[in-house]
Amino acid sequence: MTSSPPVLEVKGLRTEFHMGRSRLCAVNDVSFSIGRGEVMGLVGESGSGKSVTGYSIMGLVDPPGHIVDGTIRLHGKDLRGLPERQMNAIRGDRVSIIFQDPMTALHPTLRIGQQMIDAIRAHRSVSRSEAWRRSRDMLGRVGIPSPGERLSAYPHQLSGGMRQRVCIAIALLNDPDLIIADEPTTGLDVTIQAQILAEMQALVAARGTALIWVTHDLAVVANIADSVAVMYAGSIVERGPTDVVLRRPSSPYTVGLLNSVPSRNQGASRLSQIPGTYTPAVSEEAVGCRFAPRCPRADDACTVFPALTAAATGAPGHEVRCHHPYAAREGRLSHV
C-alpha cells in the first residue's frame, strides 16, 4: 500500500493464556503492517482477541498470558524479547495506547497535570514547568477549554468525553510513531464520538502518526480507516483496503457482520443476525476454521484451519482466511 517501510510489522503473532492445565489461545497467527500516517481498523466482537493484540504490541500482556510466537517489528526492530527496561523506554514514547475506559485508566487521586507530566518526564529530561506547559498546550489541542485549570483537576471532576480527550492528549504527548486506540469512543454520546473521531483523524494526519483503531463498530472504521483487519476468535479472517473490504467482503463472517449493521440494512425488513453463539475462549486443541459452526458455507473442508490467501477481488492487500470465500460479485451486498 505504501512504498515507505512500515512503522509496525506484526508477523505470526500468537498469544496464549495458561489457565491451570488448559491453554487458551487469544491471538492466533495475526499478521499485518501499518505505514506512516496510516489508519488501520481492527474489528471484531468482544473477546475476538483485538484488544489482546494491542496489549501484545505494547508488551502489556501479564501472566497468565504469554506471547508464544511471532514477531512485532517497530521500524524493523523486534519488540518481542526486548528487555523490560528498553520496552519501557518505547512504551508511551514511540508507541502509546488509549484505553477503552478513561475513568479506570486515569489514576483517581492524582491530578490530571501530574499524570501528564509523569508521562512526559518518563521519556524527556525536561523541567516540571516545561512539562506542565507542554501538557497544557496538548490539552488545548485536543479541544479542552481552559486547559490550564483542567490540569489541576481530578479525573472525577471531568465529564466522560473530557476524560477521554485527556487520554488522547496523553497518547499524543511524546509525539509517538504509533497510537493504539482500544475502543476509545465506546460509552460516549454519538455526537461526542463523532467529534473525537474527527479530531483524532486530523491530529494523526498532521503528524504522520500511524493509528490502529480497535473497535467493534464498522461504521467508525468506514469513517476513519484506510485499511481494515477483521478478527474472529483470535485470527484475522479478512483484511484489505477499507472500501474494498466493506463493499466487496469476501469472508462469510465479514458479510454476516456487515448485514447486522443497522445503517447498512435499511432496505431489509429485519436486521439479520449471525446464527449461533460466539465462544470467545478458544482452547489450544481446537482445529479447523473457528467460524465453521456458524457459517452458512461450511463443509468438510472447513475442518482444516484455513490460511490467509488473496481474495477474488484482486485488490492489493485484500486477503481472506476461508476455504469458501465469496467471489467478487456474489459477496457484494445487494443494497449497497
Binding site: 505494547m58 502489556l60 501479564d62 519501557n88 523506554a89 518505547i90 512504551r91 508511551g92 514514547d93 502509546s96 495506547i97 484505553f99 475506559d101 479506570t104 485508566a105 486515569l106 489514576h107 483517581p108 492524582l110 509523569d118 508521562a119 518518563a122 521519556h123 496523553i170
Partner: peptide, 20 residues
C-alpha cells in the same frame, strides 16, 4: 487499570509503585 495505564505510559516501576 490505572497501573496498566501507568505502565503503558512507560513510567519506571519504582515510580509506579511509590506514587501510583
Amino acid at each position: 487499570n490505572f497501573v496498566r495505564y501507568a505502565r503503558a505510559k512507560g513510567l519506571p516501576p519504582r515510580r509506579i509503585l511509590s506514587v501510583y
